[in-house]
Write a protein that binds this DNA or RNA. Sequence first.
DNA 1: CTTTGCTATGAATGCGTTTTCATGAGTTAA
DNA 2: TTAACTCATGAAAACGCATTCATAGCAAAG
Lengths: 336, 336
Amino acid sequence: MAKITIKDVAREAGVSISTVSNALNDVDVLNPVTKSHVLKVAKQLNYVPNLNGKQLRSGKTKMLGFFTTSVSGPYFYKLVESMSRECDRLGYGLNVFITKDKQVIMSNILGRRVDGAIIYEELRIDEEDISAMEEEKIKAVFLDRVLHNETMGSVIFDSFVAGYEATKYLISLGHKKIAYISGVDTMFDSVERKEGYLAALRQYQIPVIEDYIMQGYFEEESTYNAVKSFLHLHPDKVPDAFLAGNDLSAIGCIQALKTLGYGVPLDISVMGFDDIDIAQYYTPPLTTVRNQIAKQGILAINQLVRLIQKKEQGVVQKLACELVVRGSSHVKINSD
Amino acid sequence: MAKITIKDVAREAGVSISTVSNALNDVDVLNPVTKSHVLKVAKQLNYVPNLNGKQLRSGKTKMLGFFTTSVSGPYFYKLVESMSRECDRLGYGLNVFITKDKQVIMSNILGRRVDGAIIYEELRIDEEDISAMEEEKIKAVFLDRVLHNETMGSVIFDSFVAGYEATKYLISLGHKKIAYISGVDTMFDSVERKEGYLAALRQYQIPVIEDYIMQGYFEEESTYNAVKSFLHLHPDKVPDAFLAGNDLSAIGCIQALKTLGYGVPLDISVMGFDDIDIAQYYTPPLTTVRNQIAKQGILAINQLVRLIQKKEQGVVQKLACELVVRGSSHVKINSD
DNA sequence: CTTTGCTATGAATGCGTTTTCATGAGTTAA
DNA sequence: TTAACTCATGAAAACGCATTCATAGCAAAG
């Protein structure tokens, strides 16, 4: 049997197409008897509305798109999970697009496959595309870029404060020689964390030593190598503590220190960022800074829906971080 | 400015709508000069085709849907990543729907928002829905259910063999008293793993002891409690080894054993399933059985696309597992 | 010079739905 | 009795596009 359409339901129920449409969409102009009759027939025929027809006509899809370059790692699935739940609550569907192709993003948004977009794309969308989106009054919320105008906004982590607070904590343990293992310098959070680190040092009048800032690229292995070669080169400059750009980097750092015979945390404190799943199971358990990932998802979806409903203009929302103290950090033991 | 449609491009280029359509869709009947002119005008106007119109008319969306009840945990993101990559390669988009509402699944599939579906839904779709899908010739591939007909197939892990091989390995280490910590008995993989365990014991003529089979529900804490209370109740029946339903469960088990003063692996071997990220970082690193998650994703997408293109009927594909030996297992030390 | 065949293009139709507007029946007021 | 007004329903248009089919133009064949 061919696909049942609204037409078939109308014929079978002995009413017009528009009556069927009104019945299905709860438009309150119908005689209750007619309505229930139509619904009964529809159910009996196993009628399912064609979403493409519906969307074409109404101009709405009731779908939100999450566009991201990657979905691996706990950040993404926690985010996706919270957004998904919030979408359910608000009567929207969530659509996850994983792609590095900017074209895909633009054609899906501008081609109206979704009513609005949450975007995490590591800064690949350039000003020109932003303008195109602005022109078309596309509704979007960015998770890794600070931006707000009539139809677009942001929800981001306050990574500057995260870097600042982490450093302040290490200082409070008595550490002065604090090394920083930088992440990827093109990423927003990476840059902000480092700035926070630098700001804290300045605040407590601890001189910034360039050699103490190394590149870990957010990876375990790169960090392992970086830390090892640093200590090889500067055996006289062993830091009191390492602040790594993220937890994976912190693990690489600790592995290197273990290999070289340093005890963590007794000889050297190490901390990271993110509080990934592994952090609490690692030996020693990682001291780290946790972001409110679920909250970011919830705020983003809510702002997006408000934008779609034109209840407000775009805003920038910043989320506070949370220090998680575990076993990889320790008060400075005076070894003089 | 209002949204640009194909009509505007046609007017501006001085040609008909159909010519624009042919130019954009690479239909090879056009004069190359006309074609390039049309494309130039389209680009100049920043024309982006409305996907709803396109899809309604063509009956195709070039989108595949992944329907799942959850996206948390490494299994899902690894799966999603591999499927996404494969979709890209084949010229499809991937659409992730996270929902526990069966209705959402059915209306998206039957409402033709996607050309085909990959389904992981923990057996919530009943026979009636399967029939409805069959009737409509919906193309679908299931990841947690064995099923094949003209338009639907499956790609699953051979969890029976996984359970069998894991048990066989523990036996090869000299263990005889092997306890099993069961997962969730409504889930396909969980049941199969346990059957494999039982089959291996039978094979090597080791009697099955009912007390050695406990419930861990795939959770760390449940397992922790189960193991603790078991050893409390049966101090005379300490097993040589524990085979846990998954890695999280194995971790719970090891925590309990540590607490009670048993050494892992010297006193007791423990192993799990899945090889989650934490497994290699845990102390001791977990011996486990790894599934070919990425391969599952790739096979599923490819089968689905073949079904859509009507190149073949649905089939059931089973994936072999892989034993990963790490530090949580050890040859039996005779303590007599 | 007419006919045939071929190519490039345009007019028109329809995909399945929502939505606007008209219509006819029934009710009330004058 | 008739005009005015409700109210439930239906006819038809429109959303943006792909696609079918007709046709104009032109070259080759008769």
